[in-house]
Amino acid sequence: MVNNSDVFAFYTQNSLDKPSQLFETLSDSFYFAKNLNGRFVYANQLFLDHFKFDGLKSLIGKTDLDILPRSIGEKIQQDDQHIMKTGQAIANIVELIPGNSSKMRWHVTTKSPLLNRAGETVGIEGITRDLSLADKQLEPYSQFKNTVGFIQQNFSESIDISKLASQLHMSISTFERQFKARFACSPSQFIKKTRIAAACKLLREGQNISLTATQCGFCDQSYFTKEFKTLMGLTPKQFQKSLAASTHKIDFIK
């Protein structure tokens, strides 16, 4: 975490709040900000690590031409000038950028004007997602892609956990342990949450509670009501009344 006041001089001078520490939690994306001259005024730690900067202070004042091949840097600068001139963001720019080695890696960038508290453009800010890092983040979940798809398509039917485990050539205990490690809930809990999510949709559409219970894989309305209240904090009837009264919208399952 950077505390040196000199690093954030740009933010103070331009009536900007310091960048959120949320940017430091990104595991596959670079956050950066530049001034009107295209010089870096901030970047998150992942950006600094990727381009091998010792710290934020060593990046401040540099341009894209200082850290990237000229052909790439010039194209980025052209995009930046367009954003600052028009005030319009540019989304999902696909770029090939060198990684830590000489290997080029695919990145997707979205950039927008950096506005101060008066609404004036004082630079640009953006987020660049390294697709190779994104793939690595998804790897632990990809093994269960077909399992999740099967549950989402067949939640209204009885689902046998042992069959789900056998499809992945796992014992039930191994399957349940690895599933919970990735999704923070057991397979049975995941199935239940999938059913409740589907029930919420039907209840919002005005369908009666009994039919909703049947279509979402619950054996009877009483059991459905009990499980729905456990996850949603309201009974199905209370849920529908809250929607009709428009007092608040409930979208989250515990």
Rank of each mutant, 00 (worst) to 15 (best):
T12C: 02
Q13F: 14
N14G: 12
S15L: 10
D17P: 00
P19M: 00
S20K: 04
L22F: 13
L22N: 08
F23Q: 05
E24R: 06
E24N: 09
T25W: 07
T25A: 08
T25V: 02
L26P: 10
L26G: 05
L26M: 13
S27Q: 15
S27T: 15
S27N: 15
D28K: 09
S29G: 05
S29W: 05
F30S: 04
F30Y: 15
F30G: 05
Y31F: 14
F32V: 06
A33K: 10
L36Y: 01
L36H: 03
N37L: 09
G38P: 05
R39G: 07
R39N: 12
F40W: 02
F40K: 03
Y42K: 01
A43D: 00
N44M: 06
L46I: 12
F47H: 08
L48M: 10
H50M: 05
H50I: 03
F51E: 11
F51D: 09
F53E: 04
D54K: 04
L56F: 08
S58K: 13
S58V: 09
L59Y: 10
I60C: 14
G61I: 14
G61R: 06
T63Y: 12
D64K: 13
L65Y: 01
D66Q: 14
I67F: 06
L68R: 14
L68I: 14
L68Y: 15
I72A: 03
I76E: 10
I76T: 02
Q81T: 08
Q81D: 09
H82W: 06
